[in-house]
């Protein structure tokens, strides 16, 4: 696997919606490089052919799909940082 670059870190930081300044990009690039190096056994190992079945516990029986009470609006909004008229307010999205 090729080495992780500053450009890689900027790209994944954008994917993760995490703002990094340039000094953090440099610091994280170095740390991730060291972590990936320490974990290189994962890349080097001879792995057995993967079992194609999904990696979950056996599907258990499901409960009946019955409509129940939902969280009251005021409680759902109680922790929101910016609320107006029972809605969460965010910055303008459309021009």
């Amino acid at each position: 696997m090729k080495e992780i670059t500053h450009a890689d870190v900027r790209r994944i930081a954008h994917l993760a919606r995490l703002r990094l300044d340039e000094s953090q990009v440099a610091e994280i690039s170095a740390q991730l490089a060291r972590i990936l190096e320490a974990f290189s056994a994962l890349q080097a190992a001879e792995l057995e052919p993967a079992d194609p079945s999904p990696d979950t516990t056996a599907a258990e029986e499901r409960r009946p799909d019955v409509v129940g009470a939902s969280l009251p609006r005021d409680r759902a909004l109680a922790a929101a940082p910016d609320v107006e008229d029972g809605h969460i307010r965010i910055p303008r999205v459309l021009g």
């Binding site: 922790a79 965010i90 303008r92």
Partner: peptide, 18 residues
């Protein structure tokens, strides 16, 4: 930063997340 927890001041939604 939308439904709970700390929200930074930002003028667009992506910046608000980031």
């Amino acid at each position: 930063g939308v439904r709970f927890g700390a929200r930074a001041t930002a003028t667009d939604l992506t910046a608000l997340y980031e």
